[in-house]
Nucleic acid binder design. Sequence first.
DNA 1: GTCTATACTTTGATAGAC
DNA 2: GTCTATCAAAGTATAGAC
Lengths: 192, 192
Amino acid sequence: MSAVNKTKERILDVSAELFRQQGLAGTGVKQILNRANAPFGSLYHHFPGGKDELAAETIRRAGAQYAELVAGKLLAGPDLVANVRAAFRSAGQTLVDTDYADACPIETVALEVANTNEPLRLATAEVFESWLSGLTALLVANDVAKKKARPLAHVILSALEGAFVFARASRSTEALDACGAAMATLVAAAKS
Amino acid sequence: MSAVNKTKERILDVSAELFRQQGLAGTGVKQILNRANAPFGSLYHHFPGGKDELAAETIRRAGAQYAELVAGKLLAGPDLVANVRAAFRSAGQTLVDTDYADACPIETVALEVANTNEPLRLATAEVFESWLSGLTALLVANDVAKKKARPLAHVILSALEGAFVFARASRSTEALDACGAAMATLVAAAKS
DNA sequence: GTCTATACTTTGATAGAC
DNA sequence: GTCTATCAAAGTATAGAC
């Protein structure tokens, strides 16, 4: 039971890593199990639904982990405006450190499945919605008017996701730097 | 020769459509040729380099076409601020009309190849850079200070690409609406 | 229950008939 | 030159040995 769960977690961790870098269609289950040092049959033992079930669980798990990671940066200091800027800078630093591989863990998959796999599309939508409501609440707690908070959360997260695309394609943090500064400005304006 | 080019263009058009909806790894060459009503061998006649060469040409072609499309919206009226808002609204309308399929033609592929296929990564980077320099020039021509123009172009395009991710995943234009309003505000502020 | 071997399908690519 | 038949490899999934 304990060994079982460790194997399952290892499979999920490797899945998240490969999906983020290569996408869903570009990653084979054999490749996942190989790198996780798990025998091939164990996939269907832990995930009777096969690749789709593994993908759904990976999306939800990676989404929750990333929410914690980003929320940690946004709560790091007392000044939310500075924290927003720092979160974008930290995301850029992570990209540089990982050869521009570790951006959003579900972005590639989300685009792949949006019109091809409805259950997985729903999984990505749920993750994004959880991020949105979390950031909206944080903005409200920092004196942003309730009516303005959710649109602003949408803009901040969209800028982050979009900057990831430019950053990974151009191997540069220029987009993340520009967005970090602009989002800090928008948050500051929304607080007054 | 004329028939040859028509076949080639049909293949490229179908490729662009399928890559945008399913990504690169999720689209088979047989599926492309099938839908383009082209015999299988013709792929390797027109694209000796196989799928990769087809993908590179598709990226550059679709990127140029999309630049024209968006530039058309941004130049539609005399007021750039209004045009920016209209461009985001138009993108949302296109998504609704196409069942949330037609967003950015190269975004999914760009994320897929960023760490897996260096020639294709470069192709996406070149397209993005062309969009950036085009929008930067447009901002400068509309009284945005030269130093501020390129970062602002980065923010606008990042917001658009990021909003596409949220829109397609959640099947809602909420992110595009929020980003359109915010970007219009940023452009207005940069002009003063 | 863990794992190996295999079945079946689809992939990208090529050879050669016409 | 156009197109068909086929290849080797990789894809997911399953059956069954232990």
